[in-house]
């Protein structure tokens, strides 16, 4: 099924804290379908405050309950909130979310070695769920905060080979290093999405990423309803992901 793995549904009250506009589920579905998607996965926005994450998650769960034929969802949480963050994520997985994310260490102020973040990784491993982790471009990135770069992600991957990871926005450039055989071997549980953001990637990016990764590792993502520069037509989700969603 043609699936957009990366859209956002921001409740109006939280819109000022996110870089994408607020849009209701119906309007979001219409927008996604116009790009060819037959299904979309709502990624949670990486809010810094757990209270905001909870509001975001209620909106995501509502959308996947009311439009089950079109929407799936990941839940967000704020790792800095410790046990409460873990509790929130576990409750959302119980309620029907397919994974945790999008988490963003730079925006949310945590590191990949943070014990509270690692507990979220363990939760995903235990439940066979996916963690969606924002990764920054090593070169040419925009924005502040401590960037999480492909080399950081690879250390996490090496430490937790059983963790299923979705690295959005071309994984910050990590796909290129899949051309190194020893790196490729480590990416068996890692997928990337083609969602453009801020500094926009032109359409040939997905062709190049597929050349580096192989066809089944790159998932379509639009980042709708955020600013989109020609995300191109939606494509089929790999069969392996049907079980995940």
């Amino acid at each position: 099924m043609k699936t957009d793995i990366h859209v956002h549904l921001i409740p109006p009250a939280l819109s000022p804290g996110a870089d994408v506009p607020a849009l209701g589920p119906e309007a979001l579905e219409t927008l996604c379908r116009s790009g060819g998607a037959e299904r979309a996965v709502i990624q949670g926005w990486p809010f810094r405050r757990l209270e905001d994450c909870q509001v975001q998650n209620r909106a995501i769960l509502q959308a996947i309950r009311t439009r089950p034929d079109f929407f799936r969802g990941f839940c967000t949480t704020a790792p800095g909130a410790g046990a409460a963050a873990l509790e929130e994520a576990a409750a959302c997985l119980d309620a029907g979310c397919s994974g945790i994310g999008e988490l963003d260490p730079a925006r949310q102020g945590f590191s990949l070695e943070d014990p509270d973040f690692l507990k979220l990784c363990a939760l995903c491993e235990d439940r066979g769920r996916v963690l969606c982790l924002h990764t920054d471009m090593t070169v040419g990135r925009e924005g502040g905060g401590r960037a999480v770069l492909p080399a950081d992600c690879l250390r996490l991957i090496e430490a937790r080979p059983g963790l299923r990871l979705l690295l959005p926005h071309y994984g910050g450039g990590l796909p290129f290093y899949a051309l190194m055989p020893e790196v490729a071997r480590k990416l068996k549980n890692v997928w990337f999405d083609a969602a453009p953001e801020g500094c926009i990637l032109p359409p040939q990016a997905s062709d190049c990423a597929r050349l580096c990764l192989g066809a089944d590792r790159l998932l379509f993502g639009s980042h709708l309803p955020g600013p989109v520069f020609d995300a191109g037509p939606c494509w089929e989700l790999p069969e392996e992901w049907e079980g995940i969603l």
Partner: peptide
Amino acid sequence: GGLPFYELLPHV
């Protein structure tokens, strides 16, 4: 060292 990939960013 992998820099060609970042040429997908127009400013790079």
